[in-house]
Structure formats: structure tokens, C-alpha cells
Write a protein that binds this DNA or RNA. Sequence first.
RNA 1: GGCGGUAUCGUCUAGGGGUUAGGACACGUGGUUCUCAACCACGGAACCGGGGUUCGAAUCCCCGUACCGCUACCA
Length: 503
Amino acid sequence: MRVRFAPSPTGHLHVGNARTALFNWLLARGSGGTFILRIEDTDVERSRTESEQAILEDLEWMGLHWDEGPDVGGRFGPYRQSERLYLYRSYAERLIREGRAYYCFCSPQQLEAERKEQVRLGRAPRYSGRCRAIAPAGARARVDAGEAAVVRFKVPDQERVGFTDIVRGEISVSIDVIGDPVLLRSDGHPAYNFAVVIDDALMEITHVIRGEDHISNTHRQVLLYEALGVTPPKFAHLSLVLGPDHTPLSKRHGATSVAEFRAKGYLPEALVNYLALLGWSPGEGEEVLPAAELARRFSLEAVAHSAGIFDEEKLAWVNRHYLRSAAPERIAALSIPYLRAAGFATAPDARGLEFLASRAIPMVTNSVDRLDQAPRRLHFLFEFKPSVSIQDSDVAAILIHPGATHAIDTLASELEMMPRLLTRDTFRAAAARVRERTGLKGKDLFHPIRVALTGDAGGPELDLAIPAIDAGAALPADAGIAPIMGCRERAVAFAAALRVDGR
RNA sequence: GGCGGUAUCGUCUAGGGGUUAGGACACGUGGUUCUCAACCACGGAACCGGGGUUCGAAUCCCCGUACCGCUACCA
């Protein structure tokens, strides 16, 4: 089995295309087949090498590695259509020689007028075939004289064309709706329908898996395969990905490209897993499955026929699963850009990384959807301003409780006599001392402690947050982590702020 | 306009001539926790409409409707 993903390098990798790539990949990996990457850059106007690079990176990021492609090569290269122009020309010439294709000299204006007329008459707009009448020798002479011409395929005289789609079954149309398609444009570049057929045939692609926007192209392509004397591959057309308003997923819906989801802090395995579930189901049971398992279970026959709505909420839920099970060291490294943007880190060294992985990240991985939310969850480590905190209504509600200020004063004095609270147990011991001296317990005890030490009424659990603060405070200044004030200093500062405020 | 495709909870889907139409996300309620988040439990929520076939249709067939795609010298 040989499958391919054939993007045109005209922009970023869209999640819809990423899903097409994924389904190809799943099929290849699940059956020991070959996954090929081919760049369809025959549109000179719109193709950009930066886009090609970006698409390759996005695919790599998703873990969709290819066996043959423009960068890795392979027996069927080149894998960039712009490098295969000679092939399209020679096959076009062969078809002309065989009388299956001809030169067309019609101007775009002429064609446009014809189209309008057809539509007005309520017919399928298609090329009239006028230039079929030009004698080959005469056409040749005009072309040699430099007249602009395209090469058109002569649609054979038959009733219908059809093919069997693996996901949808028989799909056929009357041949009348198909006008002679352009094979070679006047600039010598192949038109899409011609280039795909030549490439898929020459690259010995066995299964063409692509978006359903290509269904109507398929009929023309089947005709071309027949003219070339090649058995067509099997086809499978995937439904499209839409936004919540049932229109094609676009910028209006927010993030649409793989790069944007990566930037928001989604893990590649989460995107892969979510996309696999959009339009396909592994069957009853668990939905969170690693790529290898998805590949093992995947089958085209089980792919849904109807369009899927991209649901970022569900992507987020999948992401949470992977965030929780990922190694903290990996998450720490991935979080650095977000922490840096928030001013919480510069370039952490080994000590800084160790602090993040063992102290900070455990507070974010099971309470956040994406990594770009990490700073929000960790801000209390780096930002501590008692005078600002006591203005907050939630904090004020805690401070107003009887005994709250007493608890904070007591905490401050206790911490002055204690070592740094580097573990859960030392923190618990400190809390126990305050409990003994004030008689407060439960909320009445822990709420004031939380407020005094983190400056917030909410946040990660204190058993994690407090040791993280003191571990951070012990970090050397050149560890690449923004300065963190220790618990002892915080308690004293908070108590002082309360006195200034007259409480 | 023409041609093609599609239709199960708000969303992703399982199922498929006789089922209490199942699961997941989201939502609501409750629980746990020092708090928020997370987590756990429970709950509400669907077979597009009309005909036909059949003892019986959400399931098969036809028509309609809606939505999507194509209708290029874009891919």
C-alpha cells in the first residue's frame, strides 16, 4: 500500500489538511504501507517556499513522518511538482499524438462568455470543445509560431463516468457535465487534474485519500487514467471540517492552523488524537489513544460520511489527558516560552529547569487546558504585593473573618523561627504550630495562610504551592528564573501591610 | 442555476427491521478539597420531514428540505 499527502505550499497547514494527512498516515502505519509527501506547487503565483517549509515542520511536529518526500527523496522522485514539469509535458505530448488531447487557443474572455451563456440556459457550464476542430498540423504550426495555447483532454464519447469510493460507495455522473479539461496551461505548467494523475500513477499510489472537495475532480481523473492505460488507484474522500456555525473552518472561528494550536500550548499527541476522532471512531470505549493504537485500529470503511464540526473544547479535554501523563521535564521545557513572555523566566539553566519540572509544573499539569495558561497558574510565585492583594474582594472577604489577622501575625512569627518550607511536611508542621497557638482550624486556618503567602484567595493547593515558593526563593539569581520571595518574608510583609491598612 | 455529496443529543459519535437508542465533550446538580481549577457521582439532552415496503422503519426504498462541495489556464 502506498498513500500520499499532497499539500500545495500556499499557506500554513490547516487542521483540515492535517486531518487528511493524519488519515493517510494512520492507514499507512496501520498496514505496513508507505506514506509519501508530495508538494503540489504548480501554482507559481501562490506557491511559497516558506510555506513548504512550514508545512513540513508542522507535519514533523505532529509526528507524521513520511517515507518518501522532497527532503528525504525516494525511488519515485522528484517529489515537488515544479521539478516534474518535463514529465507532464511528455505525457501531454503523448496524448496529443494519440489524438486524446489537443491544443486550444480560446481566450479567457471567450471562455468566460461561453460559461455565462451556459449558466443562463440552466446547463452545466463546460467548454464547448470548439478547438477540437482545428487540424493537429495547423495547431502545431500556430503553437510553434508562438501563439498562446493550452492543451485540453478530449473527453471520450460515453454515457457516464464513475468510481467506487471506499467511504461512500459508487459515485457516477453523466459525461455531459464534463467539459474537456485543461491538461497544460499556457505557461506550460500542468493543471491540477493532470499533475495528480501523472504523479499518482508514476508514484504507484494505491489509495488516494483526500478531501471531498475533490469528488468531482475524480471523474475527470478516472477518464485520464483510462486514456493513459493505467489502472486508477482506490479513492477515499473525507468529509470536510467545519466551524461551529457549519461554515468552512476559517480565521473567523479563531485558530485554524496547526501552527496556531501549537502556539497556544496544545501537545502534538493531543491534536493527533483529537483529529483522529473527528470523522472516525475507534469503536466503543476509550477515546484517548496513542497514535500507534489509533493506527492499529484505523480503517477507511469506518470513516464518517458527514462533515465534522471542529470542537476546541474537546481538543482541550484531550490535551488535559496528555498534559497529565507527560513527563514534567518535557512540559517544563515546553512552558519556557510562555513563562518568558510573562517575564517569569529568561533562559533557565539546569537548576532552573529542575525547579520548574519538580516544583512548578506539577501545579499546572492537572489544572490547565493548555500550556499558554501556565503563567496564569504560576503568577503567585513571581508576583507578590500584599498592599495590592488586600484590595481584592475575595481576599478581603477572607481577612474579615475573625482570627484571620491573628493567624497571619502568628504565621509570621512562627516562620521566623522555622527553616524554609521545602516540603509538604514542613509546611504542615508550620500550619500545625499556627493552629496550636490560635485554635483556628480548617478554612479559618488555611484561608488566611493562603492569602498571606500567595496573595490570592485561589490557586494551586497549598501543599504544592508553599514548598514551590520556598524552593524558588532558594534558587540562585543566575538560574534563569525570575526572583521569588520566600514564605518567611511574605508573611512578614503581609502582616505589615495589614497594620498599615489598620486591620 | 447545473452536477455531486451528507443527514442519530448543542458537538464528536456507537448502533442498526423489534434496543429503556449506548458512550464521550460541553451543560446542570451534588460530592471531595483551605480556595479556584482539576477530579468523582448523578441528571437533562437525539434518530430532518413526508410517503412507500413490512406484522413492525430511526434502520431499507423514493420524494422533499436543509447543509456542504464542485461548477477555473487554484489546488
